[in-house]
Amino acid sequence: MGKVLVVTSGKGGVGKTTSTAALGAALARGGENVAVVDFDVGLRNLDLVMGAERRVVFDLINVVQGDAKLSQALIRDKRLDTLSLLPASQTRDKDALTTEGVDKVIAELREKFDWVICDSPAGIERGALLAMRNADAAVVVTNPEVSSVRDSDRIIGILDSKTLKAERGERIDKYLLVTRFDPGRAARNEMLKTEDVLEILSIQLLGIIPESEEVLKASNLGAPVTLNSPTCAPSRAYFDAARRLKGEIVDVVVPLERKGLMERLFGRRVA
């Protein structure tokens, strides 16, 4: 029986899709069988970030409605055969998703894979609730910035009340993934420190992903950053996070970009 994870945040643009792809690929590289599921119906993007946008034939809604079999809709990654994608529909409306249908698809995925990672849409509406409904654990993606932290607090409250686990009176594991973190700015007190965010949200820390140009480079190319450049700072942070998800104890450090001498001397960028 696989484990179901939801990657959620409330706020949009904080890195849910990037993190879903990166964590999924990191786990799959470690030999785990992983399915990443896009729940952002109408605004799908996980296919694009993973470089599978031209291979989508059937999607989540086709499977939910019984128009396609799960095996027909799953897209196996070309680089990693332990990684599969279940895309969202781009044309349909999220109302086409039914609770029963979603429960059935997730149950089927749970049978086939070690990890089912659901990429939640932003917001706290139906789509987000369906994405978290079957989750055993949640990764709350948060930027060290006031509006993101506030929305994460809201989503934590919703995870504690609206998931199936919560309804059964069980506890859903909640992990904080801080993304777009700039250690320099945090040290200069220009950015919330991870400890501040942790103290405010009081959930377990999964990892700190440093801000890096490698993330955009990878999405430009349609590859999870952990596959595109596995040794760069954000990738190392994602690999560590993936190991923590598996229950390993890994010290939390913020990996820094290894810079060459010339870059160190002249590499200071404006913005």
Binding site: R150, D153, N189
Partner: peptide, 25 residues
């Protein structure tokens, strides 16, 4: 510095929201 201001604002705001808006089912 601005980060401590952000932290304090969040702490005050979220304490309030958790008691009022965050009142769960």
């Amino acid at each position: 510095t601005t980060a401590p201001v952000a932290r304090d604002r969040l702490q005050v705001l979220l304490a309030h929201e958790r008691s009022v808006l965050g009142k769960s089912d």
